[in-house]
């Protein structure tokens, strides 16, 4: 795995590997699970007169390529917000990237930002699921909600962050995975996103904080 570290967790009997590249990998299905890619966000901002370079997204895609190659994944499940808004030049860059990975299936559980047309999704070779996608013991849904006891849901949407406070008034905010008994919330994959740290903290939750190339359990 090079110098990127991983943590293994068990969700509803299934082993999942959390990578410090802000993705989860499901070994038995050879599937990568990511959330909140926000492709096209930088071009959308440029469109509105705010000059954000596209290299942000290109770097995100490089990271995704690295994950695909490291884990030898066959499939990617995106739990929502794969695209920031409409089709734009950033999405065309993604289309080029997609050419290299034609054999990999991409499944998108739609989120509140995904506003591409059906024809665009077809062109990009992305299959859209229902609002909730169930695959064996795991379910995927964009927004984390309270769920029934039998299910284990993997979500995104909130861009979770962990606020660490140390001695001598030191504090750091870093992206994290949140694992509870029935829910796993993934950090936002895109670098051009903020962090939400104001979530409820209770004792039953595990936090996997991504700091640099490593992952830490809190």
């Amino acid at each position: 795995m090079g110098n990127d570290s991983c943590a293994e967790i068990i969700c509803n009997g299934e082993k999942l590997v959390l990578s410090s590249l802000k993705a989860a990998y499901w070994p038995s299905e050879k599937t990568l699970i990511i959330a909140d890619l926000h492709l096209g966000k930088s071009a959308y901002f440029r469109n509105k007169g705010i000059a954000i370079p596209s290299t942000v997204m290109i770097n995100d895609l490089h990271r995704l390529s690295k994950l695909i190659e490291n884990f030898e994944a066959n499939e990617i499940i995106v739990v929502g917000d794969m695209f920031h808004h409409n089709f734009n030049s950033d999405v065309s860059l993604f289309e080029e990237w997609r050419q290299q990975y034609q054999t990999i299936k991409i499944r998108l559980v739609p989120g509140n930002h995904d506003k591409l047309l059906q024809i665009d999704y077809e062109k990009l070779n992305i299959s859209i699921t229902k609002e909730k996608y169930v695959c064996g013991p795991l379910s995927f849904e964009h927004e984390p909600k309270q769920v029934f006891s039998e299910e284990f849901v993997i979500s995104g949407h909130v861009h979770p962050g962990y606020l660490m406070q140390g001695k001598a008034r030191q504090a750091m905010r870093l992206p994290c995975f949140i694992q509870s008994e029935t829910l796993l919330v993934l950090p936002a994959f895109s670098e051009f996103t903020g962090l939400f740290t104001n979530h409820e903290r209770s004792g039953t939750k595990n936090y996997f904080v991504v700091g640099g190339n490593a992952i830490f359990c809190f």
Binding site: F45, I50, I52, V56, F192
Partner: peptide, 20 residues
């Protein structure tokens, strides 16, 4: 009206430092 344009100066600063 511009909910999709929300971001913070901190994020933009970080992005500029790294990419521009």
């Amino acid at each position: 009206t511009d909910k999709n344009l929300q971001s913070s100066s901190g994020i933009i600063f970080r992005i500029f430092e790294q990419y521009d």
